[in-house]
Nucleic acid binder design. Structure first.
Lengths: 141, 141
DNA sequence: AATATTTGTTCGTTTTTGGAACTATGGTAA
DNA sequence: TTACCATAGTTCCAAAAACGAACAAATATT
């Protein structure tokens, strides 16, 4: 993991110089001490996450790029799937897909489901239980 | 900047659940103590940059996404629709997204929902009605 | 209702950062 | 060359933060 620190160090320096800034300039921008910037760039220390985000904004570069992880900047689809679909596969989670289809076909059920989501948490739990009980019952008979 | 911590917290939890992992599972993966994960997810503390990168790799999500610096959900959705959805004109609306999120967070509910789908149609109808009744009831009281 | 699993919180300890001051390097002009 | 100035690297200490263990609370399952 030493590599990552190295890249981050290099990149901070790189983007700083891209702006024609001295360490002092950057430090002022971030409202921190100059010596801290020096330490980042020499790999002696690492900015915390909050500051990293600030750096990303300051330089207008993605955080992934900043830390040298822009390899996985792959396709949108993959990101999207990871973002919104159930995990394991590269494909859509078949189960979710099934539910999706089902709800499209049963809009009323969908509406009521949405209603449930809006309920206070405790009531949601109650609904879950009841639902569970109902399904169990239905499967048994 | 308080916002960022909140989003990061939510996202770590979200992606963890997407994998159907407990905090313990994630902790093991990262070779750290579970309580640390708990603290991240409750916003009590923040992972350092090294660990953040590890998380990004583990979940296969960009760091920017992880800290909530992503292009907005709506944008991503639009992009996705443009690229993959427009063909067969499926209705992919925000409500559906909400439901998906909800099911990710409540895997058990998802399972039971799937059970329902497998029931014979008549029973499904019955379940629908009961569900609606329950929701109506819950909303009234 | 009782048990087991999962999550949240508190505490003391350890690690790490951040800042001040000092040192080192590089360029420029006399 | 030497003196000077701006910039960058390093050391030390204080302060902040994360970490892990143990305990407490909440949630799910039977």
């Amino acid at each position: 993991m030493r590599l990552m620190e190295q890249k981050l160090a290099e990149n901070i320096k790189y983007f700083r110089k891209l702006q024609n800034w001295t360490q002092q300039d950057l430090a002022k921008h971030l409202q921190i001490s100059r010596s801290v910037v020096a330490k980042w760039e020499s790999g002696t220390s690492v900015p915390d996450v909050k500051t990293l985000i600030l750096l990303s904004k300051t330089f207008q570069v993605s955080i992934d790029h900043l830390v040298g992880m822009n390899t996985s900047r792959a396709d949108l689809l993959k990101e999207f799937q990871k973002m919104y679909m159930s995990a394991d596969q590269r494909q859509w989670d078949p189960d979710m897909m099934e539910i999706f289809d089902y709800l499209v076909k049963h809009p009323r059920m969908k509406e009521y489901f949405l209603e449930m989501i809006k309920l206070p948490l405790k009531k949601q739990k109650v609904v879950h239980r009841m639902f569970q009980t109902i399904i169990d019952e239905m499967e048994r008979t």
